[in-house]
Amino acid sequence: MRIRSDILVSALTRRVFADGGYAAVVRKGADASGAIFVRQRFRDGLETLFGPAPQAMIETEARDDRLFEERLSRAEPEAVADVIAREMKFDSDLWLVEIEVDAIGTYLDLAPTAK
């Protein structure tokens, strides 16, 4: 069974705060199944954007898990905002969470990258 979006977002923000980072829910989406986007901000002003991994990247036995992929890496804030705006036109029920941590670590389960 797939974990609800509101529960995953709540757990993420609590973990970030517990580790001394900062997290904020910028946009609240559908409680049960809204897509979750995470905007990671760095001290140098750059940002990384994580979004849901395409279902094709997820193995069939793991389809209940929420996997993320890196959409933009250490990009200018304007570029990240543009991607988020496009996603919001497509999906009005998405969640947007901003975090300020140096490394994403184990906060998100990332889909395997192609080698």
Results as ranks from 00 to 15, higher is better:
15 R>F: 01
8 L>I: 06
18 A>N: 10
4 R>W: 06
13 T>K: 11
16 V>G: 08
7 I>M: 13
111 A>D: 07
1 M>W: 07
66 R>A: 13
7 I>Q: 14
6 D>V: 09
84 I>N: 06
46 L>Q: 14
25 V>S: 09
22 Y>V: 12
12 L>Y: 01
35 A>I: 10
78 E>S: 06
46 L>I: 02
88 M>V: 15
38 V>E: 01
19 D>F: 07
34 G>I: 14
9 V>Y: 06
99 I>S: 01
105 G>E: 08
34 G>C: 01
28 K>Q: 13
24 A>C: 05
80 V>Q: 03
70 E>C: 15
3 I>N: 09
7 I>V: 15
85 A>G: 10
61 E>V: 08
5 S>V: 07
107 Y>W: 03
80 V>N: 00
109 D>H: 08
53 A>C: 04
13 T>Q: 13
86 R>A: 12
104 I>S: 10
84 I>D: 00
27 R>W: 05
57 M>Q: 15
100 E>H: 14
32 A>M: 05
27 R>T: 11
61 E>G: 04
110 L>Q: 10
4 R>C: 01
32 A>S: 14
8 L>D: 10
89 K>M: 12
49 L>P: 08
107 Y>F: 12
39 R>S: 10
80 V>M: 08
71 R>N: 03
1 M>F: 13
111 A>Q: 05
94 L>A: 04
7 I>S: 13
26 V>N: 14
52 P>C: 02
99 I>T: 01
25 V>L: 12
97 V>C: 04
71 R>Q: 08
41 R>F: 00
73 S>D: 06
21 G>P: 02
62 A>N: 11
18 A>H: 13
33 S>H: 09
29 G>F: 11
1 M>N: 08
8 L>F: 08
86 R>C: 01
20 G>A: 09
107 Y>L: 10
3 I>P: 05
39 R>V: 03
25 V>E: 12
56 A>L: 12
11 A>Y: 05
55 Q>P: 06
106 T>E: 13
30 A>S: 14
64 D>S: 09
105 G>N: 10
103 A>P: 00
45 G>R: 00
27 R>Y: 09
88 M>A: 15
2 R>V: 08
106 T>L: 13
77 P>Y: 03
18 A>R: 14
115 K>I: 11
92 S>P: 03
2 R>C: 02
72 L>I: 09
30 A>L: 12
5 S>W: 03
54 P>K: 04
112 P>D: 14
88 M>E: 15
38 V>G: 07
68 F>K: 07
89 K>R: 12
32 A>G: 13
106 T>R: 10
31 D>S: 12
77 P>G: 05
68 F>Q: 01
46 L>Y: 06
74 R>T: 13
67 L>Y: 15
